[in-house]
Each structure stands twice: as C-alpha cells, then as structure tokens.
C-alpha cells in the first residue's frame, strides 16, 4: 500500500510542479515582451470570469423572467403562441384577477394552509428538538426517522396519503388507514378526499400532510441551534434555582430566536407556494367533484396561476397568470416585511 501510495503522490507532485512551472515560464515570457497584462488580471476582471457561469444563468432564468412577468401583466390580449398582444392596461388584469371568485377561493385556501400548518409545525418541531436534545441514547435513530420526509418525493408521499385517507361509510372493505383507526375508536368512517367529501375533511388531510412534511427541516435546524447554546447559561440558571420550563422560556427560546425567525419566514413563504401536495392528495385539478356537497374547491393561489398558464393559448389569459403571480409576490412581501419588523424587536442575536 505504501509503495503505490508514494508513487501516486510522486506523479501528482510532478504534474503540479510542471503545471506551475509552465505558468511561470509563460508569465516570464510575456513579461519580457511587456504583454503580462494577458495573464495578470485585475481583480474585477477575474471576478467577472468567476461569476459569468452563475450570473448568466441567473440573468436568463431569474432576472429577465421577473422583469418580463411584470410586462406581461400589463398587456391585454397577449397570446403566447403568436407572441403579440393587443394593448396595455395598467391595472385591468389585476382587477380582473382580484374579482374572480376562484381567486378569492384560492386566497382563502392558501391562507388556511399558512395560518394553521406553519404555527403547528413550528411549535411541534420545537418541542421535538428540545426532546431530542435532552436524550442521549437513540438520538441518532430518532433523528434519522424524523428527517425521512425531507428526502422523499412529495408526489409519492402525497399519493400514499391519498391512499391512507380513502374510503367512505358504505364500502367497509375499502377503508384507508385513517378510517380504519376511526372505526377502532368507535367512530364512523368519513369521506376524507373522495367523492362526497366535505371541505374541511379534505383540507385536514392537506394540513396533516403539510405538517408531516415540514417537521423534518425545522427539527434539524432547531436542534442544531439548541445544541449550539453554551451549557454555561443553563448552569448559571440552575444555580439561581430556575425550573426546567423557566430555563426553556428564558434561555432556550431567546437564544434560538434567530433560527425560529428564519424558519418562520421561510415556512410562510413556502406555505404560500403550496401546490404539488394538493396535486398529489386531491388530483390535478384541485377539485373534488361530488354529488351531495357540490364541487369542493381546494385550489391554492399557485394552482390558480398554473390553471391560467395552461390556458395560455387563449388571448389575454396569460396576463391573468402574471398578475396573479405578482399579487402572490406582493402578499409574501408584505408578510415578510411585517415579520422582519416584529423580528427587529423580538429577536436577539
């Protein structure tokens, strides 16, 4: 092992030496001719070279689209296939979008998801992180299990959830896991997401899934944060006679408040963008067409946007998608700024 090792090392050495040496030779040669500027680049030129790959991609696929979306939202009669449009309207598209019943519904659906799943997930995640921090054996085992949802495919697990929540009162041979559990504790099975479901039963499934999915990332971040708190703070508190819950509220929470804050902001932003989970659990239209209760609409704002993208070949409808997307951005912006303002006072660094 050793002989081969050093031969390999020798080859690497020679290669590197030669490489460097050729560089020096070129440099000297060019210096003699006064042409050293070819290789001695000033910092800003070097920076451009290093940044070109990333920045060019970002230009095309990030900055330009943002700009363009704004433009499209001001067109009327824009047709994506012909690439032309009829005229301009400043707020026309926005007005139309905002007055759509569908859009209002989408906002309601999305708000439900944001306002319920985010606090629940953060709270439960925090509890779990604290518990994980307090135990030693089996910690790695639990950590692995809790982190599983992060690496799994949301569509796949969404389908599993759909499967777990199927069934209805009449067909007792076809109950999903959830209904099965209900019968065990003596309740009658309900239709969660199938034909005949109610709005809240379907929404609960979506919410449960959101929580399930969101725990993983938060637990990891919170745990890392808690573990980073200096033990001396707790020792000082112990000497001062603080109880467990007191040290939690007065030491742990403030010290990881930056992390909680970061998670809060990113979770809210993420929750507003819910889409694929609804597709997975409900279906690609986001609608449950039923007999008794009418059509249950579970579309989120993003759903709405994609619906109109799908209709892009019809004149002017793409602009609705743009407008809706920009409205979404506005909502997120408002929420984030609000959080930042609150954070300034409450978060300690």
């Amino acid at each position: 092992m050793n002989k081969q090792d050093s031969r390999l090392k020798q080859m690497i050495w020679v290669f590197r030496s030669k490489l460097h040496h050729t560089g020096v030779v070129i440099d000297n040669f060019l210096s003699k001719l006064g042409l050293q500027f070819i290789v001695r680049w000033p910092a800003w030129l070097k920076a451009i070279f290093y940044l070109i790959p990333a920045l060019s991609l970002l230009m095309i696929f990030t900055f330009y689209p943002i700009f363009n979306s704004f433009l499209i939202s001001f067109y009327t009669g824009y047709n994506i296939q012909r690439g032309d449009f009829d005229g301009y309207t400043l707020f026309g598209n926005y007005q139309t979008v905002l007055s759509h019943a569908n859009f209002g519904r989408a906002i309601f659906n999305t708000s439900m998801i944001v306002l319920i799943s985010v606090p629940v997930t953060i709270f439960v995640g925090l509890m779990i992180a604290v518990a994980l921090n307090a135990i030693k054996p089996l910690r790695g085992f639990y950590q692995s299990i809790f982190f599983l949802p992060y690496v799994t495919n949301s569509i796949a697990i969404g389908l599993v959830f759909a499967f777990m929540f199927k069934g209805n009162v009449n067909d007792l041979t076809n109950l999903g896991l959830a209904n099965q559990l209900l019968t065990w504790i003596g309740l009658k099975p309900i239709v969660w997401i199938g034909v005949g479901a109610t709005y809240w039963s379907a929404m609960s499934v979506i919410l449960i899934y959101s929580v399930w999915n969101g725990l993983a990332f938060k637990i990891i971040v919170f745990l890392a944060g808690i573990q980073g708190i200096d033990k001396q703070y707790y020792q000082a508190a112990q000497i001062d006679g603080a109880s467990r819950s007191k040290s939690f509220y007065r030491i742990t929470v403030p010290m990881i408040s930056p992390m909680i804050f970061y998670i809060l902001i990113t979770s809210v932003i993420g929750a507003f963008k819910t889409y694929s989970s609804v597709v997975a659990i409900i279906n690609r239209e986001g609608l449950i067409t039923t007999g008794a209760n009418g059509t249950i609409n579970l579309k989120t704002i993003v759903f709405y946007i994609y619906d109109y993208i799908g209709l892009a070949s019809q004149d002017g409808l793409m602009s609705y998608a743009s407008a809706a997307a920009i409205i979404l951005f506005g909502i997120i912006l408002v929420f984030t700024v609000l959080q930042l303002q609150v954070g300034k006072r409450r978060v300690h660094y």
Partner: peptide, 11 residues
C-alpha cells in the same frame, strides 16, 4: 424571496 411561479411563466 420571490416565488418561483414568477419565473415559470417567462421561462
């Protein structure tokens, strides 16, 4: 901070 959907359209 910007939602991905904004890019999707133009992209």
């Amino acid at each position: 901070m910007i939602p991905g959907e904004l890019y999707t359209i133009t992209n």
